[in-house]
């Protein structure tokens, strides 16, 4: 099980990286943490002709801004997990990251990689959706910003063009009165979830007044449900379409979705 032949480039600057992407188009693949790309290569599920290794680009920073907490695309899962600023300003990520893979994978896998991959069962994209993060994309025509709701387009599909790099994910700073909840159902620790829920909610006097729930593992992309009360969230969640597999058929997943909703909202209201 060896990776197929490819060529490898390691740009030292963003411009170089983008020039490479422009030159090689869909034949090229960006290599970030490699924790998803390398297995696909080793299994020969992908045969790109060029790998553009972005690990030398200055995209690792986690920076607190006036309005936002900006997480560089190359920030490793472990760095985000142990960052004090993240714990403060995007506590949902801190709740979610222990569920992402395992120690060694977190040491290498990147925040941007997880978003760019857009695995429907992944935790971070759901958090980004619940937190209304915006994705900063850079391509030959400069930078553009895409809100989370428009970034995830389908199964392993995002708004990223073949010549674009995800450079940053900007999270609005946590606001007073907002609480966060995270739960997932997985058979083993660190597995991709069978179903999960990342939630942000405004709570007044122990009562949920406004919430954004991002379910993952239930459709081809994370699914956002908004509501102004638990009752409304229940209703809207029940209308959500849920997909399944032979082992985890749709009715089963639907039950998990209800359970997750109850567990997360009650943990938030507690």
């Amino acid at each position: 099980m060896k990776a197929p032949a490819f060529r490898y480039a390691r740009p030292e600057s963003l411009d170089e990286a983008i020039a490479l992407l422009v030159e090689h188009g869909t034949d090229a693949r960006v290599l970030a943490g490699g924790q998803s790309l390398m297995p696909m290569l080793n299994l020969r599920l992908l045969q790109p002709s060029v790998l553009v290794d972005i690990n030398r680009l200055p995209l690792s920073e986690i920076r607190l801004q006036d309005q936002t907490l900006d997480i560089g695309a190359l920030a490793r899962h472990a760095e985000v997990l142990y960052s004090g600023e993240v714990a403060h300003m995007a506590p949902l990520l801190k709740l979610a990251l222990p569920h992402v893979a395992h120690l060694a994978v977190r040491n290498r896998g990147t925040h941007g990689g997880s978003c760019a991959l857009a695995d429907p069962s992944a935790e971070i994209p759901a958090c980004a959706l619940a937190l209304e993060a915006s994705f900063v994309l850079r391509g030959p025509r400069g930078e553009r910003r895409v809100p989370a709701e428009l970034f995830f387009r389908g199964l392993y599909e995002t708004a990223l063009g073949a010549d674009e790099l995800l450079v940053r994910v900007d999270y609005p700073r946590a606001q007073p009165g907002w609480r966060y909840g995270f739960q997932e159902v997985a058979r083993r620790h660190g597995d991709f979830a069978i179903a999960g829920l990342a939630a942000a909610a405004r709570v007044e006097g122990g009562v949920l007044r406004e919430a954004r729930l991002a379910f993952f593992g239930v459709a081809d992309r994370p699914v956002l449900v908004r509501g102004a009360s638990v009752e409304e969230l229940r209703e809207r969640t029940d209308k959500m379409e849920v997909s399944g597999t032979r082992v985890y058929p749709p009715p089963f997943r639907r039950r998990l979705v209800r359970v997750l909703l109850e567990r997360v909202t009650s943990s938030i209201e507690k």
């Binding site: 390398m38 060694a104 290498r108």
Partner: peptide, 29 residues
Amino acid sequence: CEHGVCGACSVVLDGAVVRGCLTLAVQAD
């Protein structure tokens, strides 16, 4: 396993344990 699941290939890269099967040798530069 060569797909990141078993951890038998663990090595330490710049102070942190990583999967040796999910990192390219050229990245050790």
